[in-house]
C-alpha cells in the first residue's frame, strides 16, 4: 500500500535516452536512470522511442521529422517530465519541435505542451529537482566540454560543473575554449569531414593541454567525435559522459577505450 502511494506522489519521468546512447553506450542510460531514481523520480523508458528526428530536421526533411516527432510526443505524453542525457536532443524536443509544428493546427498545442516538459539531465537535476550534490565517488581529474546546443540553446553551463564539484575525489580542470564547438555537427562530421577534422584537432589539443585524466561532456555525439580523435592520435585521456561520473558508474571501459 505505502509503495503504491509513494509511486503516485513520485515525479514521473520519461527518459528519452537518445538514439546514440541506445545504440552505442547503454551505460549512459543506466547512469541516467540511477541519477533520476536517487533524486526520487519514478523513471519510465518507453519502448516506442527511437530518435528525436534531428538528422532529418537538420537535413531539411520536415516531413520525416514530423513523422518521427509525432511518435515521440505520443510516447512521452503520460509523464510529468521528459529528460534526455543530451543538450542537443533536449534542445530538439524543447525548442525545435515548437517550430516544427508552429503552423500545424492539429499538433501545435500538443507539441508545445510536450516541449514545456523537456529538460536536459543535469539541468533537470539541479534546476528542477534542486539536487545539490550526488553521492558518487570518482578519483582523478576531469575537464568538461560544453556541447553547443546545451550551452547556447538551453543555458547548460554551471549545472554539470556544480554537480561534478560535489563528486568526492574529483577535481575539475578547465580547458581553453571549453565552450567552442568540437566539430561534430551530426552529419557535418561525415559530409565535411576535412573541416570537422580541423575543428576537432584544435579541440583535442585544448583537451590534452588541460592535463586532466578524463574528458567529460553531456552529449554522446560530441564525445564520440572527440574520443575518436583523441584515440586516433594515441591520447591517454579517458572519455566519458558526465552522467557516468555523476552516477559513479566508471567501471566500464571509457568511450573508444580498451
Amino acid at each position: 500500500m505505502t509503495a503504491d502511494r509513494e509511486t503516485r506522489e513520485q515525479v514521473q519521468v520519461g527518459l528519452f535516452v537518445t538514439c546514440l546512447v541506445d545504440l552505442f553506450r547503454p551505460t549512459v542510460g543506466f547512469a541516467s536512470v540511477k541519477l533520476l531514481e536517487d533524486a526520487g523520480c519514478q523513471v519510465h523508458v518507453p519502448k516506442a522511442q527511437t530518435c528525436c528526428g534531428q538528422p532529418a530536421w537538420n537535413s531539411g526533411d520536415r516531413k520525416s521529422t514530423k513523422g518521427i516527432a509525432e511518435r515521440v510526443i505520443a510516447a512521452f505524453e503520460p509523464f510529468d517530465y521528459v529528460v534526455a542525457p543530451s543538450g542537443s536532443c533536449a534542445g530538439m524536443l524543447s525548442h525545435h519541435y515548437r517550430e516544427l509544428f508552429d503552423r500545424d493546427e492539429q499538433w501545435r498545442e500538443r507539441a508545445n505542451r510536450f516541449a514545456d516538459k523537456v529538460h536536459e539531465l543535469t539541468s533537470f537535476l539541479t534546476d528542477v529537482l534542486g539536487v545539490e550534490a550526488v553521492a558518487a565517488k570518482v578519483r582523478g581529474t576531469a575537464t568538461y566540454h560544453d556541447s553547443c546546443a546545451g550551452l547556447r540553446e538551453l543555458g547548460v553551463r554551471e549545472q554539470p560543473r556544480k554537480l561534478l564539484a560535489g563528486v568526492k575525489g574529483l577535481k575539475l580542470k578547465e580547458m581553453k575554449d571549453a565552450h567552442v564547438c568540437c566539430g561534430f555537427g551530426g552529419t557535418f562530421a561525415v559530409k565535411y569531414s576535412d573541416i570537422s577534422n580541423a575543428i576537432v584537432t584544435e579541440k583535442a589539443d585544448n583537451i590534452d593541454n588541460a592535463k586532466a585524466r578524463m574528458l567529460l561532456a553531456g552529449d554522446l555525439g560530441c564525445l564520440m567525435n572527440m574520443a575518436g580523435k583523441l584515440k586516433r592520435d594515441g591520447s591517454a585521456v579517458e572519455v566519458r559522459h558526465v552522467a557516468e561520473v555523476l552516477a559513479g558508474m566508471v567501471d566500464q571501459p571509457p568511450i573508444g577505450g580498451e
Partner: peptide, 21 residues
C-alpha cells in the same frame, strides 16, 4: 568521412532499451 580522421568508438553491445527492459 568519419574514419578518415578519427576512430569510431564501438558500441558496448546490445541496445540500452533492450538491456534495460
Amino acid at each position: 568521412g568519419w574514419t578518415a580522421h578519427r576512430d569510431l568508438p564501438a558500441p558496448q553491445g546490445g541496445t540500452f532499451i533492450a538491456r534495460y527492459h
